[in-house]
Amino acid sequence: MSDIRKLVWYFYKPILLWNLAFSFVCLWFIYLYGVKIAGLILFFKLIGYAATTYLQSYTAKNVYMYYRNAGYSIRRMYAYTYGIDLTLYFAMLTIYLLIK
């Protein structure tokens, strides 16, 4: 089988900057309005994932075949990618809350 870690990196790379920027904006809102809005922010994060998936399916649909030919479904690639992104977001949120 292919190296799933590398494939996830290739899949994540084009959207990494957008997702990181979105995460920082989310943290900025938590900084402004307090941790009480963390649930609402998480909801926006999920909306962001939906928007990213929608945009990718228009602009980068052709490359989906690469991952399928490597043996993986696109649903699985998105699940891994957003799982990692969400983990990064929670890590940043935890660090922010610790140093606040």
């Binding site: 089988m1 292919s2 190296d3 590398k6 494939l7 290739y10 899949f11 790379k13 084009p14 980068a60 052709n62 490359v63 989906y64 075949m65 690469y66 399928r68 030919n69 490597a70 043996g71 993986y72 479904s73």
Partner: peptide, 27 residues
Amino acid sequence: YHHNRIAYLPQHNYLPAGIKIEKLAKQ
């Protein structure tokens, strides 16, 4: 495509941008 049973060459280009050919080929 699950478990690499069947591979498919589509009519369009399918390789992702920004990654060297050798790295893409290895997968």
